[in-house]
Design a protein around this nucleic acid. Structure first.
Lengths: 343, 343
DNA sequence: GTGAAAGCGCTAACAC
DNA sequence: GTGTTAGCGCTTTCAC
């Protein structure tokens, strides 16, 4: 593997000159620059990143820490991140924390990532992660839906504004005659998710029958995936309460819920209306197409990286916000003649 | 940021000793080891990876180069890779090559990734990528479905055995009365995909009406996503041929095809049976649930990393193979009374 | 068993 | 404009 020294020798210049033409860090005469370039070409020279990293103390690497990379929601966010990350010659690395996140953090710190996006749904883990990261002065962007939390100065937040979408959703349900709507949260009770508060608030304001029993929290380790949706829905069905609509923390859970509902011999939407969140790609093609709160995922991903760059370069921190939007499809409808013998 | 030197000073030992206890590379007396450890603890010391990289010439990093990270198929493979990658203290980085891959490769080479998994569907690009990588002596694993290609000694292959699944699929279709089945390839003509060959072969053997017009290749840049499925299906419909079943290169394309079919006022499966490939998560919940060739994605991801490790450590190369399996769901059925006025 | 010291490949002063 | 050189933090012989 050719080094900068070899190039310098071949081109008959000093190593510093080579550096300067490669990094365009100082003006070098056309003549020498040409020599250097051709030497680079000839030797098939590629700068050694590790060495560069060591002197500059920058890795040009950003990492995404995610609970579940196989959730396409994060896949699309990652695609958005990748886009701007790449344009800026950064590298995106992805860590999936299925379980406790301890080891990842050490890795991230060792690798001296320039910034990390914490997209971990488990609240306890994520605050732990954030703390460890900020202690090392690593810029962090957190996905939060709550503005209530106080973060360290190293952290910026990206959040989704759910207020309008949640209000629209509940108004829509109300207008369709729904008065008892459940919520499959998946997360632990006490999670800092604005949607929970918004759900309560708008239910009160609009005149729904509110019953905490209709809100189903998850079990450790608090996943929000297909299985979790399936389990939560079954939990809800066992409670034997009246409900005609179910809102789920995300589309994946909604699909799990749909499975459970069908197994219980209930029809969608005639017996139960289902609403998801995220609008992942498949919600459009699913059976039935899913009513959901759409989130601009790619845009969100781009924003995250911009936020991180801001923190890395200017050391100036801000927050960013993206809007959720209700998308009505076939999984919801008016309250119908419920098959009461269904369960 | 504490360095090894600080630790050595605090512990009252040499830097070498610190290295030895951290890397367990030589026996160090319990007494000193304890001192070192507590110094590490106290200083919150974390080894600098860049420095380590520089001396060891290893990055402990593996890269996945993928055409489309938002395709959940790759998401699941990535999850499998991440699993073993993590267990071995490696880092997984993901690059999405939407468009020409030139720049990524340079990045990968600069970063001196220890190994890369090339999951790029575009054949021309992928061979170019492989060449550049192997020229730098970087171990590569390629996803191929063809055994025909001769690769450099630095490349191992992971392949899916489609033979049985393809035969089962076509037999199944034949038994259902289908005689004209189309194939939406998405890729360019001449792609090294065994499925194309297998499709032809079994169609002949079983006695289908074969007509190359029923095989639809893609257009540059040869994507195999939803849009591509939609476009290809429309292309097929315009050809105005008889067909009662359509096989698609992957589930994403199948969903795109389904959209086009519905827009043409055709019913699934009464008028057209649809078969996908991959069995991504949503194929189970889609409308209709998709008949598809299932691939053990996580397992595949794990194997890829193992292959890469083999290449990195022992410099011994092998190949690995995983089996596809036909999964019959509701998007296929017997040839019915086709609504000929449908298009 | 422990330590000194020579690099690894590059950057960035600083001289020339 | 171009070259010299002192590190960056760590690993690893090789002495002791």
């Amino acid at each position: 593997m050719a080094t900068r020294k070899d190039v310098a020798a071949l081109a008959g210049v000093s190593t510093a000159t080579v550096s300067h033409v490669i990094n365009q860090t100082k003006y070098v005469s056309d003549e020498l620059r040409a020599k250097v370039l051709s030497a680079v070409e000839e030797l098939n020279y590629v700068p050694n990143y590790a060495a560069q990293m060591m002197t500059t103390k920058k890795t040009n690497q950003i990492t995404m820490l995610v609970s579940d990379i196989s959730n396409p929601y994060y896949g699309e966010i990652a695609a958005g991140m990748e886009e701007v990350t790449r344009q800026n010659k950064y590298v995106l690395s992805i860590s999936s924390t299925e379980g406790t996140p301890d080891n990842y953090i050490t890795t991230i710190i060792e690798r001296q990532t320039d910034g990390v996006f914490v997209a971990v749904t488990n609240h306890i883990y994520s605050s732990e992660i954030i703390e460890k990261l900020t202690r090392q002065r690593i810029p962090v962007v957190v996905a939060t839906s709550s503005e209530a939390i106080e973060y360290d100065e190293m952290v910026s937040t990206i959040s989704v504004n759910y207020a309008t979408a949640m209000e629209n959703m509940l108004t829509y349900l109300y207008d369709m005659g729904h008065r008892n709507t459940a919520y499959l949260v998946g997360l632990e009770e006490g999670s800092d998710d604005t949607r929970i508060t918004l759900f309560d608030r708008f239910q009160h304001e609009l005149g729904f029958n509110t019953d905490r029993q209709l809100v189903v929290f998850g079990d450790f380790p608090y996943r929000t995936n297909f299985e979790s949706g399936y389990t939560s829905m079954n939990k809800l069905l066992e409670r034997d309460l009246d409900f005609t609509a179910v809102f789920c923390t995300n589309d994946l859970m909604a699909f799990g819920a749909i499975k459970a509902i069908r197994e219980a011999n209930l029809r969608i939407p005639e017996d139960v209306s289902i609403i998801g969140c995220d609008n992942i790609f498949f919600s459009e093609t699913s059976d039935p197409p899913l009513t959901t709160i759409s989130i601009p995922k790619r845009e969100l991903g781009r924003r995250v990286v911009e936020l991180l760059f801001g923190a890395i370069e200017k050391k100036r921190l801000t927050s960013s916000r993206v809007n959720g939007e209700l998308l009505i499809r076939a999984s919801t409808g008016p309250v119908g003649n419920k098959k009461t013998e269904g369960r």
